[in-house]
Nucleic acid binder design. Structure first.
Lengths: 253, 253
DNA sequence: GAGTGGTCTAGACCACCCT
DNA sequence: GGGTGGTCTAGACCACTCC
């Protein structure tokens, strides 16, 4: 009935997972299409439905499958957005350049403190700031969740711009020059609304870009966090020799 | 007996998870220390041990806990290494600068093709290459798993250097100059040995840096993949205005 | 030997979707 | 109504660790 236990898997649910993964990779199960139901797989493999469910859940958290209650379990479509991080190009323009149809959606404008642990490396102010939250969609699929933090004494018409377009475009439209961008790329578990928006289960990690943008106007320093599902986005950057500093160029020791 | 269901959690295991997370964050359960056993938590919360296990497993994949069979479940120590990606500094020197005691461990030297999907963006050669695998430890904890790919016609003494020290240091010792580094930062599920080394479960994603280093010697182009658990490493970079290109500096449209 | 987590199973209930 | 996945439970077995 089955041909499991072929790989180096030490447990049943692992074997099942490997086998399903193999079928996805080899194209037996196609992106966007449903895989057989738990019951059917259970019968095919001669394993308890619970064990099948376990494997499927693991593949879900690994971003390979997406299960929809009442409908079935589907192979996730894999199309990844390459964010060019070393170029001053807004996410929107970046997406357009890569052939996506990008769209921006304002979620909320609130007053909040920045509480993220990683963010503290960038030394954000301790007091409450204006927080503009939006999602960026590419081809109608959400790929980014952005929280932009502005000092709360900022002009209302600037805030408006921030809710309509990206940080870079908003600044440009007010003729404010960027002096420096400090970026931290990390991954952290999805929390709250982010889980919903991207249908991410169980606090699974999101790829994040935390930024601090300093401008010529000393009053205007912008902080922000952009979160993306790791299977929808990757960052790319280029480091030419003539721009580099560090131990390599100095005579070491 | 319990005070669950307080958060916006829609299921029992979610409530339990939130409660455990709260206790970790508030310091009731301390880093490095064990949390109560499944049986005890089951009693305390008035929930099936299986539901407790479910919550614990989710917190494990989220990098908060680490369960050791026969010993107990422990709160993971959180100390994160900030890799400065825009500076030409070897990982080793970077770690040392941050106060870690770094160490390098050679794992294997093999001949392999580069098969990673993301890597294809960097257009690596299709034929088999020399693959040097090593781990980087900081304070005796593994933080990076590096696979360096070299064209297989390279001198043996250079290969030797690559297995002893980082790419940058190896090149420097042979007086080879780096012309450009192209970097892609993404996250991808852990596979095979990586799961073991970092005690990562279920193909949980690792933060990765894929690089292509071009040098003055045309024969020598180096590819590589560095993987790290996302709770042990983040990348940082700085983008000063004078080095930037892109739409912002050009007159747009 | 007592305690730990890990695995696998069986069975029941729910909410949802589609026809 | 018959299918789907999601949740929760009970119970049994194993391998491991520590005393």
């Amino acid at each position: 009935m089955n041909n499991l236990q072929l790989r180096g898997a030490s447990s049943l649910h692992e074997s099942v997972r490997e086998e399903l993964l193999k079928r996805i990779k080899s194209g037996i199960y196609l992106p966007g299409s449903p895989i057989p139901s738990t019951a059917m797989l259970s019968e095919e493999f001669g394993v308890s439905p619970i064990t099948i469910k376990r494997s499927i859940r693991d593949l879900q958290t690994a971003g390979m499958l997406i299960a929809v209650a009442g409908k079935g379990t589907f192979v996730k479509e894999r199309r990844r957005f390459l964010r060019e991080v070393d170029v001053w190009l807004s996410s929107i323009d970046n997406a357009r350049k890569l052939g996506f149809r990008p769209r921006l959606q304002l979620l909320s404008i609130t007053r909040e403190k920045i509480s993220d642990a990683t963010m503290s490396v960038l030394n954000p102010p301790q007091d409450a700031m204006l927080c503009v939250r939006k999602t960026v969609l590419a081809d109608d699929l959400p790929i980014m969740y952005d929280a932009t933090y502005l000092s709360s004494d900022i002009d209302e018409d600037i805030v408006e711009k921030f809710s309509e377009c990206s940080v870079i475009d908003a600044l440009e439209q007010h003729a404010i020059r960027i002096v420096n961008t400090r970026l931290i790329i990390d991954a952290a578990p999805a929390a709250g609304k982010v889980e919903e928006i991207f249908a991410i289960p169980n606090g699974y990690p999101m790829l994040r870009r935390l930024y601090k943008v300093t401008t010529t106007k000393s009053r205007i320093t912008i902080f922000g966090i952009v979160e993306s599902p790791f299977d929808r986005l990757a960052c790319s950057l280029n480091l030419p020799a003539n721009q580099m500093s560090g131990s390599y160029l100095k005579s070491k020791k």
